[in-house]
Nucleic acid binder design. Structure first.
Lengths: 208, 208, 208, 208
DNA sequence: TATGAATGAGCGTTCATTCAT
DNA sequence: AATGAATGAACGCTCATTCAT
């Protein structure tokens, strides 16, 4: 007599990732408040109670989901390496393209939007941004710029403002193309975006 | 019976404006889902039932509130006029500063954040963006750029991409300074922001 | 055309009493934890949400329900008046009978049991007992006894202990007959109970 | 292989006792409904599943816990033996003190309170009371009283009512001192309580 | 027009119980 | 025998919406 298939199996190692993956999708699709724990559970293939074995409450699930996926992304970033060579501008183009590839990832897009949407309501997010994510990204760029200014290679612009302006160009495309859904209406090749951003950043729009 | 003298002052009924003003504050402070009709009512100085005399439901209130306040802002934009003169760059600095002044307005900040947070969930917002707000802003800039390219004054960059990159620089500061609350941590004078954006846009970061 | 009967009517004055009356029954029947707000609502003829218009939460409803009904009972107590006359013992019999009549009331029985069952879990109840109900009852008796001892009419017994012992006799019958449901198994006329308690209290069981 | 020496010590399986001991504490501390199986398990030093190896469900655990501990107490009662001698009243004082010592035991206090709190909800408890515990205690006293009345040593009071009144005096102190927590507020020596109860019972409060 | 009492559907969370390991 | 992961039903509470006044 065949043993009937078990209704469920123990997966204590797997469950958290499984749940957070589902949570990211559901939260991204409906927003934090509109998403229900039942939807997350169903998307994860478990029942609601199971989520509470691994996460204290909905907010905890949300925060951990974002943190984990951000880490997953920043793990990719080392591959975004400066091709530090003779031609800085050419290296920057490669870099910009690599960065855009990461930012436009489905995962990153979702994280990005959720973060912007909820940062004002959730102090933990703001704190993570200020204490972890901001230094990892913005300050690194600002430092590079500062050195460039000091060496005379770059104009004497405020490095923090400049860094933020440049990052703003990147995020503009994440927001409009992916979040606002413009990629179907005004499709743009990623490398053309990267090239344009780099050209503007280095040399501006004026014909020389 | 004599007809009463025509009232020249436009009298858009008081109540809806009163309610929408309160709604903008409450929605901005708590987000669409977290905000309750009771809170809006209390902030507006009316009772919950009254809101439903003027708005079909919560979503309707939200959409109308955003639309109305966006109109209120675009009414301000004509004052952002090109000082079209000899020195285009100098004119652009004035323009950029004027634009930032409007974008950093408390009202505009709220609208901006709410729009980004909810655009994905609320089709009406996306539609308004694509059909009304985007043409009013992005396309206008793109057209200008296109002309500049054609006349040879500007580099041959894709105008749509370039326009969006430039707008991205502005919005970056709205988001970080106002929404993320960085203005207390990294305060930046508006005119310095404006100047930096214009310099980068026109001439890039490289020392010439 | 006849106006259809309204689904519900406004009863802001009535609702709290109505709800607390239902709550007492439901809580008494099922205990605080087992009772559900839906059951209370149904028993009160309203819906769950209505309860929350008048009570902050389930615990608040419980406490207020007990307090209100205790007050309702102590309002009856003034009728329990000492027929202070020549024959103290005869007066006491009347008094005891009147007290038992009140204690054996369905309402008082429920309050009594609920109080005993939950006093340990609910600090507010303990506080109310110590600060309000105990002084109203126990201390009054103790004071009477103290005077009796001082005048030489009573034995030199500790008044507080004696008062509590006498009250214990009364509550024993509330508990066993009403709460444990013994009144169907060992029925006892109230006046015989009262007489027995008084005889024991005054003169003991020993034949003189 | 030599057969191990027979173990003479009665080894009622360890686990059930261990669990019931923990259960009594947890149930007493939080009440039946508020107590969770997890808490009981943790207090017993086992895991939740283990409880279900020995008890069908939570209610079964509760009932068996009370029964077992009541038996444990009635095992103590034989030591409460009538010092049947010349001076009945002096013997009663010893008896009353011994009884109070047992009733005021932490275990008995817990059992007592839990029983009162839940008897109305749990038919099995009521049945146990009526069929087992009541005959063991109340009827024994009533029988004694009945004999006393017949022999003319005692007043012609109803023995059942009288027995219950006397038991009520004892339980009053269990409830107030231990359950209501009055022992910190109005501390009373046990032997003074016992003496007072006996004096009242035998001779009443009136000075002879 | 305005009020606010009343509704009722919906959701987060808990927890007794089951069952794969 | 023992574990503890997983289940799923149940419940307290909220809040958008309705409607009697």
């Amino acid at each position: 007599m065949p043993v009937p298939a078990p209704k469920w199996t123990r997966q204590p190692e797997l469950r958290p990732r499984q749940i957070m993956a589902a949570a990211l999708d559901v939260f991204a699709a409906k927003g934090f408040e509109r998403a229900t724990m039942d939807e997350v559970a169903e998307a994860a293939g478990v029942t609601k109670g199971t989520i509470y074995l691994y996460f204290r409450n909905k907010l905890d699930l949300f925060i951990q989901t974002l943190r984990t996926h951000v880490e997953g992304v920043t793990d990719l970033l080392p591959s975004v390496r400066v091709a530090a060579g003779e031609d800085v501008e050419a290296g920057a183009r490669l870099l910009a393209k690599a960065l855009l590839d990461v930012l436009m990832t489905p995962t990153m897009t979702k994280v990005f939007h959720l973060f912007i949407a909820e940062v004002k309501q959730i102090p933990e997010l703001r704190q993570a941004y200020i204490e972890e994510w901001l230094p990892q990204a913005g300050l690194r760029i600002a430092t590079l710029l500062e050195e460039g200014v000091r060496s005379g290679a770059l104009r004497p612009l405020d490095p923090v403002i400049t860094a933020r302006a440049i990052m703003g160009m990147f995020s503009a495309f994440v927001l409009t193309q992916e979040v606002f859904g413009m990629k179907d209406i005004t499709p743009m090749p990623l490398d053309e975006i990267a090239n344009t951003i780099v050209t503007i950043s280095f040399r501006g729009v004026l014909a020389s």
